[in-house]
Amino acid sequence: MNDSMRLYDVALSSRLLLGTARYPSPALLAEAIRASNCEVVTVSLRREAGGARAGEAFWSLIRDIGVRALPNTAGCRTAREAIATAQMAREVFATDWIKLEVIGEEDTLQPDVFGLVEAARILADDGFKVFPYTTDDLVVAERLLDAGCRVLMPWAAPIGSGRGVNDVFALRALRAHFPDTPLIVDAGIGAPSHAALVMEMGYDAVLLNTAVSRAGDPVRMAHAFALAIEAGREGFLAEPMTPRDMAEPSTPVIGRPFDRLA
């Protein structure tokens, strides 16, 4: 069964996008990527002392695995910082994909949605394929699409919190409102069941990092997420039954033995 998704002009068969940060070692990172079957990993740009070469070694590892890189603008606090970071990322990683983050608040790491929309418009006009990390706000989502985004990445909960979906109704509303836009839940996923839930709700994919990298066994957890996301997607396609308030017997009532004695 061909159930690939398209993100901009690229068809992908895996619906898991995996972060590369905070793994116990580069070897475990590589193993986790392979165990997850993901085709896209997120990467970033940071200062490094000249001659240190850790950045080169990391980038070489990712290229050897053969996955596509989605650079982020993590930590940027203004549209201007995010735009310059995106431009540097396009050159260094040789991709026009950018996971656009403009952080507005330190405790929750929630997006500054005003700066986000501003940066998204400028970057989209400059030819970037923008993947905006946003809240579950419907109006902001509309503005991001107006700005030229063709994919939206709403949060489930604050980055690294592992809380799962904070507002299931808001995510349902987004999905219902944008039936044809690829929607990727990004941030806040802690357990495979959280990922399965959003996939059952019809989300196109899940982006996560800490839930795998900080698990006791990151490689096994990467595999668990792959299974959960596939199961959730299959469940969505199979159209779950409508819940009821009262019981309904699953075994036929007609022909029940002894029912004439009652």
């Binding site: 972060g19 940060a21 990172l29 997120t42 970033s44 200062r47 990391f58």
Partner: peptide, 25 residues
């Protein structure tokens, strides 16, 4: 841009950023 570096003058007080690939989420 990489190709513009050689022709970009740096003055006293300028903020220069030099970044390399790093793990990210």
């Amino acid at each position: 841009r990489a190709k513009d570096r050689a022709e970009t003058p740096i003055r006293e007080g300028d903020a220069v950023e030099i970044v390399t690939p790093r793990q990210g989420g």
